[in-house]
């Protein structure tokens, strides 16, 4: 499933850091998120994706960027 998702480059995120239409989603656990994240990111730990994704991002057409701790 991951392979079907498009990539986004670091440069594009950096360029659109202040663009509210781009929603950044950090999927790390809460503690790791607190330790540091890209500004404006939301935290949605992987373990809660199934249960909470719908509440946090009701609009399925929204432009989302998901990222985690590192290249895995």
């Amino acid at each position: 499933m991951i392979s079907q998702i498009a990539m986004i480059t670091r440069e594009e995120i950096l360029a659109r850091l202040n663009d509210p239409s781009l929603l950044l989603v950090n999927v790390m656990p809460e503690e790791t998120f607190a330790d540091g994240h890209i500004p404006r990111s939301l935290n949605l730990p992987l373990s809660q994706v199934e249960t909470k994704a719908r509440q946090l991002f009701a609009d399925v057409g929204r432009e989302l960027v998901i990222y985690c701790g590192g290249p895995t």
Partner: peptide, 17 residues
């Protein structure tokens, strides 16, 4: 889950920092 416009930042925090 029905999201159409998702992209993945592969590098993650490590790359970012």
């Amino acid at each position: 889950m029905g999201y159409k416009n998702i992209r993945h930042y592969v590098g993650g925090m490590a790359d970012w920092e």
